[in-house]
């Protein structure tokens, strides 16, 4: 499944970039991320409790950041496996300045397997969009937070509701 889209975040590019590659921030922003530990340079092991509504699964896996060109682009590779199946993806994330805000353009390929692929095909697009929205909404809050403030907490569903309409324009194709 191809995932692509853009997201405008009203914070400056350096801050958005540093938020996007900061493991502590990522752990707070990746929906359901319970653990993100460095295992090497820009390589992390992660534990996710991901899902939508009552449909949830625990995934263990690795996150790797590559081709890092601060503050304009990098590549993210995710590989996770859990009881409901597996999830693999890689994508390019590009950051551009736009009137003092940051325009994030992402495009990537996500593969799912196992039960989630076998029974969830009608939901996968919606779920992918929902999680992307949650992630970028949280990143925006992080990037906008002042450095001396305690990190924001992300009530994903509420935040998602607030930010859902208008911000996301993306197309997802199988």
């Amino acid at each position: 499944m191809k995932i692509e889209g853009t997201q405008e975040i009203s914070a400056d590019r350096e801050r958005v970039y540093s938020a996007l590659i900061d493991p502590a921030v990522l752990q707070r922003c990746i929906p359901g991320c319970e653990k993100l530990e460095a295992t090497g340079e820009n390589t992390y092991s992660a534990r996710l409790r991901a899902g939508v509504g009552s449909i949830k699964g625990i995934f263990n896996g690795a996150v790797k950041l590559e081709d890092m060109q601060p503050p304009s682009r990098y590549r993210m590779i995710v590989d996770g496996k859990g009881q409901p199946g597996f999830l693999k993806g890689s994508g390019e994330i590009a950051l551009d300045e736009k009137n003092g805000a940051t325009l994030i353009t992402f495009s990537g390929d996500v593969q799912v397997g196992g039960t989630i692929a076998g029974v969830g095909q009608r939901m996968i697009q919606g779920a992918a969009k929902m999680m992307a929205t949650q992630f970028f909404t949280a990143i925006e809050a992080e990037a906008k937070a002042r450095p001396d403030e305690p990190p924001p907490t992300h009530g994903f569903f509420r935040t998602a509701l607030r930010w859902f309409s208008g911000f996301i324009r993306r197309s997802v194709a199988r």
């Binding site: 509504g53 009552s54 919606g126 929902m130 998602a160 509701l161 859902f164």
Partner: peptide, 8 residues
Amino acid sequence: FVDLFTTA
């Protein structure tokens, strides 16, 4: 109705 399988 908030989102996929998600309500208020």
